[in-house]
Design a protein around this nucleic acid. Sequence first.
DNA 1: CGTTACGTTGAAGTACTTCAACCCGGGTGG
DNA 2: CCACCCGGGTTGAAGTACTTCAACGTAACG
Lengths: 224, 224
Amino acid sequence: MYVTLPTVNSTIGPVLSLQTSHRNQAETRLKAGSYLYYEGDKVNWLYQVKSGVLRLARLLEDGRRQVIAFGYPGDVVGFPSDGLHHTDCDALADARLQPLHRSALEHGGRDDKLHALLLEAAMREISAMQDHFMMLGHKSAVEKVASFLSVLIARHGTDQDGNRQIDLPMPRADIADFLCLSTETVCRTFAQFHRRGIIAVDNIYTIILLQPEALVALSKGDAD
Amino acid sequence: MYVTLPTVNSTIGPVLSLQTSHRNQAETRLKAGSYLYYEGDKVNWLYQVKSGVLRLARLLEDGRRQVIAFGYPGDVVGFPSDGLHHTDCDALADARLQPLHRSALEHGGRDDKLHALLLEAAMREISAMQDHFMMLGHKSAVEKVASFLSVLIARHGTDQDGNRQIDLPMPRADIADFLCLSTETVCRTFAQFHRRGIIAVDNIYTIILLQPEALVALSKGDAD
DNA sequence: CGTTACGTTGAAGTACTTCAACCCGGGTGG
DNA sequence: CCACCCGGGTTGAAGTACTTCAACGTAACG
């Protein structure tokens, strides 16, 4: 999940449910904090997230870390390069996963429908990452955090007392590493939105969106 | 082509030559400055670059631009999302291209080999973009430019008088938009490398690498 | 009740951008 | 042939948005 305001020609797309008919592999469960795979592991399975949230991250030589993406329900994770995983993946919240054999990506086995859907997911991934480039490179901290919150709330938020709200399963440091900011800057930006009455913060992990339009405006850099 | 120092588990990979056996589509030529496709166009063909250099870019609402990638020989461009192109693509230098029908990506037609190679290329693309994330987010201007030059010279440079050199077909502004820097910063960084005797600049588009190790060190952030 | 991990806030430092001036080569027109 | 212009490229000076460092707060947990 690349949490970016889609620019043009990007549809959100239905949460396609991938289920192989004949090779009905049982659903897997992953507890928060447990790892699904590590960078360098051989790829045998891809996984579609059914519930929960995953974190995909890479470690740099100098200890810095890049959170590549968050895996939300509907997302497919584990695309191989040279047959290997190129990120670590662990669960931020207890997750249920539908395993899909790598052969389904390569030739679909006998399931052409699944093959096509996986391919589609991979292509979407490329497009979403391209959106994310702009985010990382050319957006200010306010624009980044506003985009992140808007999209997350739009896609995975819930309605509560007439407002949308979202439960963030990841620590501030993860948001920072995903948006390429320092944790302090993420914090200050949250505080700024709060001060302005754009969001309310219940416990620190629960964000209530009070002014959706204002947040979207900020994410686009319209004034600030 | 995402010009990033590969971190771990990334092999450069051979320049695979994709040629469909039975559907032997003739090679296409594209003159410098001409567009191959625009963002939003329907994808009918993918293209493997045989010679020349392509530029893939996206325009933002506010007029800013993100250069997504450069297409060098061996690279495949044009992966669709929702059946559409999601970048503009034009030629920086006269190019020869091998068109590949989109059906080859989807089910390979009757050419399983081609299908597998295209898939492999797409997966590599995802991995390379993930590398690029770190570049954009967490690297300094010096590290970015040093990475860019190192990789470009390593992959596409030529030997001249005992030194590697490279001809840059793109203006400084393109490098800036690719690395998410201002043109001025790119300029100053080139100048700095020049002052230090790490590179020599023939005409402004031709860079001669004098101290390869120094450049690699800079790209990793070892001292500066 | 102390420890630990994360969150928040402030103050200082800095790497980059922005703005502005100037340079330089290449093309066009007088 | 020179004059002029025009689009990149380069360099300097000033501004700023972010990071870094440091202190403190706070909730969870043994």
